[in-house]
Each structure stands twice: as structure tokens, then as C-alpha cells.
Amino acid sequence: MGKRPAYSNLCKAIEAGHFVFTGELEPKKILDLSEIIESSKEMIKTKRIIAANVTDGPQGDAYMSSLIPSYIIQRDAGIEAVWQVAVRDRNRVALFGDVIAGAYMGLKNILVLTGDHTALGDNKKARPVYDIDSTQFCELLSKIIDDGTDYEGNEISGGKVEMNYGCVANPNAVGEYMEPEILKVGRKVEQGIDFIQTQTAFDIDVAKEFINELARFNVPILLGIFPMKSHGIAWYFDNYIPGVSVPKDLLKALKSAEKDNKGNKPAKYAALDKVNVEFFKPFIKEIKENSKASGVHCMAVEYERLFIPLLGEYPEYAKGFY
């Protein structure tokens, strides 16, 4: 870890040398957080998931803001939030305001994102903001946390903001596109990031090469994986998430798991889980044993039943932090 202390459980656990796991929660266009709280409680039960990312209008959709759900899961479920904040919807004034509001509510992690363009979302006519970009947001966070000021240097009174922040990186930028991706992350390292969570990877060799390249920055890396609870989700991900393609064999296996067990829900779930465990268990093992990654970010949204089959063999390191 760099100059900044580990304020969050996530960073403390990494600093203590644990191979960490983070989960993911997605507030949607819904005035009800009970599912998210339930999911968070399930994550706690695994004793292996240290924190949960809370998404901020993924794919540019107009969803419930991530700030309040991040606070609620910490208060009602006891799991630490990795509060995702996109620069798409807020200028530097609003970002600053939200960050110190989040700090006041006890949030400890921020994941900085550019945010999918509004042209991709469900309110396509919106004017996106992008007053500052994600690297500049990292600089703003450094000013807030390390200097105790806003972007212009005006002081914050009444206390110190104690947070850690990270950025994302895309392991699917391969070949000639890897270098600009790595150099871009380098700029964010310069602006004081504490961790990196990557976009999802399906190719183990690509993932390992990418981690190897990022390792030069000496910043903890959590590789993203995406277990898919249905063939439909896998298909959507394959077709609609920028830069991600699901291996054809995996898509096929998920499809036949559903087809072979039509009408029998428990058998279908078991078959789908089996496909995911068979693909991702060796994947995680390989990442842990033969790469410099500090952990895995498991984007199994609303798919908590997979956590124990997938992560059960790892130590229950997280329970000391809750």
C-alpha cells in the first residue's frame, strides 16, 4: 500500500496479506432495498467476502443512486461497501459534496468510474456531465482525503475524511490496446489509488498477462469474474457489455444446463451452478497461485448461492473484520 493508511476493511485485509473476495450489488429502478440487504447478509455468511461493490447506474441506466444503498448495507447488514461513483452524472462540485456526505455516513471505499455513456442507457436523450474524468476524480479524492480540501484547496472543517479509493482496469484490452490501458492506469496510480478492480475476464492467460503488466505499479489488484446464473444473463453480457465476450463453450454449457432440466428448477439451478463452479473454481485457484493478484472481485449479482460452492475452500479471513 502506498502513502495512505488502510482505512477500510478491504485495504486492511489486503495489507494483512489475505487473498480477498469482493461481491457486487446493483440498486435498480426500484424503491426497495430488501433484496440488496438480503444479498449483503448472504455475503457476510460466507465469511470470505470482505466488501460489496454497489453499482452506480451501470450501462448508463437511471437507477437508485449508489450512495444511500452503500450506507444501508453497512448499517443493516454489516458488510463494508465499495461505493461506486461514476463521473458521468456529477460535476466536481456534486462529486465533492457526495464524497464528504459518504464519509460522514461512514463509507470507507470508493471505486472511481467514468461510467457508461448515457447514449447506452435507458434515458438516451440525457446530457452527460463528465466535468472531470475518472483520473481527475482520483486527484480530487486525494485532495479530500490527504489534504482535507476540495479541488481548489478550500479546507474541509469538522474532521478528516478517512477513505480508500480504487479504479477499474480492463483486461480485455489486448494486443496493441493493452499499452494505452496500462499507461492510463499509471496516471491513476500517480493520483493515489489504493486498489484496482478489473472488468471481468474469462481467458486465464489474458488475465494473468494483464495482472503481470499492472503489477509494476505495486497497487493491489482484484481480478473481476462474472459467474452467470442463467444463459440469458450470459448472452446479455456477451452482447451488450463493452469489450467483454463470454467463451462460446461456456455459453453452450449454460444453455444445455437450462435446456436439459426444463421444468425442474432445483435440477436446473444445480446444473447451472455446476457449470459455473467447474469454470471459475480452477480459474480463481490459478489466479491466486500463479499471479500477483491480491484477490478476486466476484460480480455474482443476486447469485449468492454460488459463493460457498465457489469459495468454500478458502480461509474464513473476513469474519474478523465485520
Binding site: 467514468t114 447514449a119 481527475q136 472488468q199
Partner: peptide
């Protein structure tokens, strides 16, 4: 499309933009 000063963002695939 995002007026970035420190790009590229994660929305680029094989050198092409997610917008459009």
C-alpha cells in the same frame, strides 16, 4: 463522447467507441 482529458475509458473496444 465523454470529453476525457485522460482517456481512453473502458468503453473502447478494439479502438472503437461504445457511443454509436
Amino acid at each position: 463522447a465523454k470529453h476525457l482529458n485522460n482517456g481512453p475509458c473502458g468503453g473502447t473496444v478494439d479502438g472503437l467507441c461504445e457511443v454509436g
